[in-house]
């Protein structure tokens, strides 16, 4: 339970950092860490398929696409960065209030924090499940690879000289 709360708190902190960070690269790192925290939560919840794909899709691929995009943009001057930061901070300053409000509602409605959901042990080996039963997901991963490759081609490959 304690570990659950620590990971959940870390997820919220990383998510807030992603929104409030000074630069896009920090924001991307925050997002990747938030995704990684979610993956840990999923492993804890005995949902390894979800965790693996969360790691591969959200943490890895999306972060790569983000960083690729960021590398194509010019950073603003330093004085602008601090102005933008305060603007953004003011815009999202209410976010922690939502968190507190949610916590308050959670406690006042006496929703049990220690959920006792019916627990089901994974019966099959993950590799067997993936290769024998999850053909659609594998198919999706192949397409995802193509999309990723095209993302890199679109953003980085220069137009042929004869055009």
């Amino acid at each position: 339970m304690t570990l659950h709360i620590i990971v959940l708190t870390a997820f919220l902190a990383f998510a807030l950092w992603a929104v409030l960070a000074r630069t896009l690269i920090q924001s991307t790192i925050g997002l990747a860490l938030a995704s990684a925290s979610v993956s840990i939560i999923m492993f804890q919840f005995d949902a390894p398929w979800a965790a693996v794909f969360e790691l591969s899709v959200c943490t890895a691929l999306i972060s790569v696409v983000f960083v690729s995009t960021i590398s194509l943009t010019n950073p603003p001057p330093k004085n602008e960065i601090s102005m933008l930061y305060w603007d953004r901070f003011k815009r999202f300053a209410y976010l922690p209030i939502f968190l507190l409000l949610g916590g308050f509602l959670f406690l006042t409605n006496k929703i049990p924090i220690d959920f006792l959901a019916p627990h089901i042990e994974p019966e099959k080996d993950f590799r067997l499940v993936l290769w024998n039963l999850r053909h659609m997901d594998l198919f999706g991963q192949i397409i995802l690879l193509f999309v990723g490759v095209f993302g890199v081609v679109v953003f980085f490959k220069e137009r042929p000289k004869n055009e």
């Binding site: 979610v38 999923m42 919840f45 949902a47 398929w49 979800a50 965790a51 969360e54 959901a117």
Partner: peptide, 16 residues
């Protein structure tokens, strides 16, 4: 998708 995936993880946890 993070939110949806968390929902899927819960469904998987509860129902398998």
């Amino acid at each position: 998708t993070l939110l949806m995936l968390s929902g899927i993880a819960i469904v998987l946890m509860v129902t398998g």
